[in-house]
Amino acid sequence: MAKFLWVFSGGPDSESECGFVDQESIRPDFREGACWLKANGITTNNPYRPVAQVTRGEMAAFLYRTGGHNAQWVSVAP
């Protein structure tokens, strides 16, 4: 989820260590994404709990804060 959102947002520069108390349990290739979520206020959880199941409520908040925090949406021509 974290990596999806981070790459979806263009994969901006991000730390791979940012103070999650369960840092070691986050897969190395997911760490930048997790830190990007934290740095941008998309998740404030600490511990991060990398293998916990994401709920639809959390997803709504994540998507809103990621793409929709500024009501950013794409409209295309059919």
Partner: peptide, 26 residues
């Protein structure tokens, strides 16, 4: 924490489920 996001997803037709089922797994 999820209300605004859920409303946006519904408004923009990203997901139109009703009930929203906020504790359901994604």
């Amino acid at each position: 924490f999820a209300k605004r996001g859920a409303s946006c997803l519904s408004e923009r037709d990203i997901t139109t489920n009703d009930p929203y089922n906020a504790y359901g797994a994604v």
